[in-house]
Every structure is written in structure tokens, then in C-alpha cells.
Nucleic acid binder design. Structure first.
Lengths: 215, 215
DNA sequence: AATCAGAGTGAGTAATCACTCATTTTGGAG
DNA sequence: CTCCAAAATGAGTGATTACTCACTCTGATT
């Protein structure tokens, strides 16, 4: 199974798509990711997919619909597992400490991010310009994730494992560091040599204990 | 003096520009920032500037040259003050503690970021697609800033104010949090109500002491 | 074998693109 | 005022854009 098919399987119900439809999606992802949405022409995508330009418009009414149909599924896929994350399970059973919870969360999202890298790149590029994507993102991320994460934080605070800074600030800071690491590692400097395990541990250590030296 | 003229003054030697040249730059910044570079047409920019389309190409050979001439000065302006930041002065004279150093650094860069917001947005949007900008960014930020910051960190480590995690990791984590705050605050959720002073203090506290509760 | 719906085609469309250039306007020096 | 170089113009360029449509192909059903 090729790299592309693996990616497709993550995003779509692969079986319902014809061969040419798959090729269009693969070509579109590659082109959008390399040149950006606005700078990608449908003729170029068709050429790269080995398909007539008209074929694209048989399946997608507009170029924008092609973009949205690629990016939108990623958001739900990326968010879904975190939404169903059972609050009590996380707190009481699986993860005794915050460190373990963070380690599991980072590891869990890292796989998906790496596999979906080109689509993730497209997503962040286009969210500022596509209201449809922005709304979907805000709805999913801000309302679902943020509330969910805040509950987890309050739980750990009650167990005395976290300082009593307001949960939304702890959430902001923690998410900033996790996404900041993934962004720096995989989007900003993917070409540098990274010791992933080590850097994840340092990130977790940093989140928990900061960088100030205790007396 | 208008908002736009204030911005221009930051980026250009205002006096050398004719009235129409200024209007072109203002219109280009506005359009690029709103729609993205590739989706902005020169005819639209000309219209918005109240200028003939040919006038743009009298001063800028290509559309890309217009983009670069807007974004490039920002990078040097943004980086320059940090580069000339005297290592010993920072360490021994002005800032006894890391907290004070962080506070001053965040405050210092925040002004500029807020004033330059539209250009900053254009910069981050286009760096992935414009090799010219990417090279300039890497040269300035990675080599200058990163080395400079590492030296400061080593200095504070020698004074026993920072843990002995490798400086490049401390630098990565600290910069992530500062830029992460500014990004979240001004680009991601500028419409939310923020208590800036408070949130900056929390960010600094987080960097220094983490979120783990001490026994 | 006949039928038919959906997949695929590719030439064609008007609109828009970045850019050119011959010409006119402008503003300051002599 | 005259003069002139730089600034500004806007109609015009060929190329490319997203998208259409009349048509063909394909494979499953009867």
C-alpha cells in the first residue's frame, strides 16, 4: 500500500472512490501543499492526476469545493479522538500523573500529524482565507477541545497535581507547547536532526517544572 | 498622522517615496493581508490605491518584487534590535533575573508586532512559498537570534538561574512560548478579550516554574 | 444484445491575469 | 516662462484562469 493510499484511507472511505477520483485528490493535496491553494490551477492538478480537467469538475462543482472536501475531513479526524476522550478514564484509571497524560497525548497526535503533514499544511495556510474552514475549525477546536481540556485540568488540580492558575491559561500554555513542538519539529525545521523521544521528554519536563532553578 | 503612515515610517524611508508610491504600498499590504499574495491581483491593488496599474510596474518590475519589498524590511527591523542586544549588558546590568529579561523582551517585541500585524501576517503566509523570503528569514532568525539567545541562556545558567538543560532546548521552549502567546493573542484570537499584562505574567511564570505543583 | 446511468473527455468560453509601451502629465531647475 | 526627466497613464498584449457542455466510453442489468 502506497504512502498516498495510506493517507487517503485516513481521510476518506476509500472504496467509494474511483481510481481517477483518488488520483485527483492525491494530485490536489500535493499541488496545494507545494504552491498554496490560490497559486494552484485546476489544469495543473488534472495534468498531475493524469485526468481530463473536466473530470475534476464532474466530482467537485468548484475548485474551492475540492479544497474543502480535502481539508474538512482532517479536522474531524484530528479532533474526534480527543472529543470522545473519557474524562474520568483519563483522570482516574489510565494516567495517574499529568506527565503520563501529556506523553500519551503527544504521542497519540504525533502519528496522525506526520501522516497528514501536507494536508495539515494546507489547512493552516487556508484557514485565514476560507470562512467555511475557519468556522469549522473554531467550532471543533475552540468549543470541543478547549472545554474538554479544561475539564481534565480541573480534575488534576483537584488531585493537587497542578497549580491553581485559571484552567484556560493552563490550557493555552500547554496546548501552545505541544503544538509548538510539533510545528517546530515537523513544519518549521523538519530537515534538522531531532531526537524525538528526548525532545518530547524535555517539553513535558518544561511544562511541568519550567526552566527556573529551585533553590 | 494616520495609522498607515505610522506603519510606513517603520518600514521605509518615507521621504523618498512619492504620494502614489505610498498609496501603492498601503493598498498592497491591505490586499495581500486580506486575500493572500496569490489571490491578489495587481489591478485590484491599483484600483484600491487610486492609481493606474502601470504605475505599480514603473516602481516594481514584478508583482513578486512588490511583495518582497514590503516584507523584507520588516524582518530586518524586527530582528535588528535583538541582534545588537549587548550580551553583557543584558546579563549583568539591566536584568538581574530571568523574569525581568523575559518581561522586557516580550514587551519590546509586542509593540512592533501589533503595529505591523498585517505585514507579519503576509510574512508568515508567504515564507513557505517564496524561497527568497525563506532564505532571508532563516539567515536572520536562526543564525542571529538563536545564537544570541543561546549565549544569554548560558550566561544565566552560569549564574545558577536556569536549569542545565541544553541551551538550544531552553531556547526552543522559551521562544515557542513567547511567539506562541503573541500568535494566539494577536493572530489566532484577536477578537477575544485579553488581560494582556496578566497573561504575560502567567506566561513568564509558566516559563520559569511550569505548571507542576511542588510538594 | 439492448439499454442506460454515471464516469470521463477535451475543445471551447469569457474573464482575468501580470505585464508592456507609446503617450501625456507633473514639478522643479534654469 | 521654457525645458526636461521622472512619474504616471491606460489601452493593449498573449497567456492562463476556472468552468461548461456536447459527446463518448464503460460496465452492470435485464
Amino acid at each position: 500500500m502506497t504512502e498516498e493510499e495510506l493517507m487517503l484511507q485516513q481521510l476518506f472511505d476509500e472504496d467509494k472512490l474511483t481510481d481517477k477520483q483518488k488520483k485527483i485528490i492525491v494530485a490536489a493535496i500535493e499541488t496545494f501543499s507545494e504552491k498554496g491553494y490560490a497559486a494552484s490551477s485546476t489544469s495543473e492538478i488534472a495534468k498531475k492526476a493524469g485526468v481530463a480537467e473536466g473530470t475534476i469538475f464532474r466530482h467537485y462543482k468548484t475548485k474551492k469545493e475540492l479544497l474543502v472536501s480535502i481539508v474538512a475531513p482532517l479536522m474531524t479526524k484530528f479532533i474526534a479522538p480527543l472529543v470522545v476522550m473519557d474524562f474520568n478514564k483519563v483522570l482516574d484509571r489510565d494516567f495517574e500523573t499529568v506527565e503520563e497524560f501529556l506523553r500519551a497525548t503527544i504521542e497519540n497526535r504525533r502519528d496522525l500529524l506526520v501522516r497528514m503533514l501536507p494536508v495539515v499544511k494546507i489547512m493552516f495556510q487556508e484557514i485565514p482565507f476560507q470562512p467555511e474552514l475557519r468556522e469549522q475549525f473554531l467550532e471543533l477546536v475552540v468549543k470541543n477541545i478547549f472545554n474538554r481540556v479544561e475539564k481534565v485540568i480541573i480534575g488534576y488540580q483537584e488531585k493537587g497535581l497542578l497549580i491553581d492558575m485559571p484552567p484556560e491559561s493552563i490550557a493555552r500554555l500547554t496546548i501552545t507547547n505541544i503544538l509548538g513542538f510539533l510545528f517546530t519539529r515537523y513544519l518549521l525545521f523538519p530537515h534538522l536532526e531531532w531526537d524525538d523521544e528526548l525532545e518530547i521528554e524535555r517539553t513535558i519536563q518544561f511544562i511541568m517544572h519550567g526552566v527556573g532553578k529551585k533553590e
